[in-house]
């Protein structure tokens, strides 16, 4: 028997039992190649640090307390922005999804402002609010709102017409129809919207921290860029990637699965 095939068979069985392994193992060859390329000095060290240096940088910055503090700042801003974004986006989406009048009155305006895009707001926000939390929160809220609105509208409209009717004829008052039927019916879409919105908001946050920056992972990376320290840039990228991976895999994806899949509203692979 072919030993490579056999090894692959073991791997497949293992990962079936522990899916976490399947998410980690593919990174081993990548890190190995990275390490090899770096130690052969294919590119100058200053441009292309190796894994060991990045780990050392990680330990160093963690020890100094900079990394935890910056991480806290970034995550805090993202949560604040996402919270406000949902608080605006979900009600707006429900209103626009339910009322034809609200749709007509706001839809082109929503499309227009969505097209401008978050980051293009940065310069004028800097004039209005200066370098600070307000500017960054504004940008993130702005990014999160549109995907949430679009998906909420889609979700509200995808609730079959007979469901609110059934609720009404079972004696539900109008506001209960909203909480018992429209909201849960739109929930899988709202979660998708939030997921997309955070994907954009995340990038907006990094951009804002780079441009506005006084702290945060984006600032860390750009500060390192100014000092010409590739190690900290790479470190920042890895932290960003891991963080988003964790949020997406442990928070957003489970919510999506728990809502849509059991109810049979969404089928995802």
């Amino acid at each position: 028997m072919n030993p490579a095939l056999q090894a692959w068979g073991y791997y497949a069985r293992w990962t079936a039992r522990w899916p976490g392994v399947a998410a980690l193992v593919p990174f081993i060859p990548v890190v190995a190649i990275w390490w090899l390329v770096a130690s052969l000095e294919v590119f100058p060290r200053a441009f292309f640090p190796g894994p060991a240096e990045v780990v050392r940088g990680f330990v160093d910055l963690t020890y100094k307390g900079i990394l935890p503090a910056y991480l806290e700042d970034s995550v805090g801003r993202l949560l604040l922005g996402a919270g406000f974004g949902m608080a605006i986006g979900i009600p707006l989406g429900i209103l626009v999804g339910l009322s034809q009048t609200a749709y007509r009155a706001t839809w082109p305006i929503i499309l227009f402002f969505q097209a401008i895009g978050d980051i293009a707001w940065l310069p004028i926000l800097l004039i209005w609010f200066g370098f600070g939390l307000t500017t960054m929160t504004f940008v993130i809220v702005y990014t999160v709102v549109f995907p949430v609105v679009f998906n909420t509208v889609l979700g509200v409209r995808s609730v079959p017409r007979d469901l609110p009717r059934a609720a009404l004829s079972l004696g539900a008052p109008r506001w209960r129809v909203l909480t018992e039927v429209i909201l849960p019916g739109a929930l899988p879409n709202i979660v998708t919207g939030l997921r997309n919105g955070l994907g954009y908001g995340w990038r907006a946050l990094i951009a804002a921290e780079i441009i506005v920056g006084t702290s945060g992972i984006g600032f860390l990376m750009f500060d390192a860029r100014r000092a010409g320290s590739a190690t900290e840039i790479v470190l920042g990228m890895i932290v960003l990637g891991l963080l988003w991976y964790a949020v997406d895999a442990w928070i957003l994806a489970p919510i999506e699965r728990a809502t849509g899949q059991r109810w049979g509203l969404v089928t995802r692979t």
């Binding site: 860029r225 840039i233 790479v234």
Partner: peptide, 28 residues
């Protein structure tokens, strides 16, 4: 086989795609 192996990798990188590369891109 290959696609299930590589999916997490590309998922990771698609999470980073875009703006987060600005600092290293300007360095390179």
């Amino acid at each position: 086989g290959i696609s299930t192996f590589l999916t997490p990798l590309f998922r990771f990188f698609s999470v980073l795609a875009g703006i987060a590369w600005i600092p290293i891109a300007t360095l390179w």
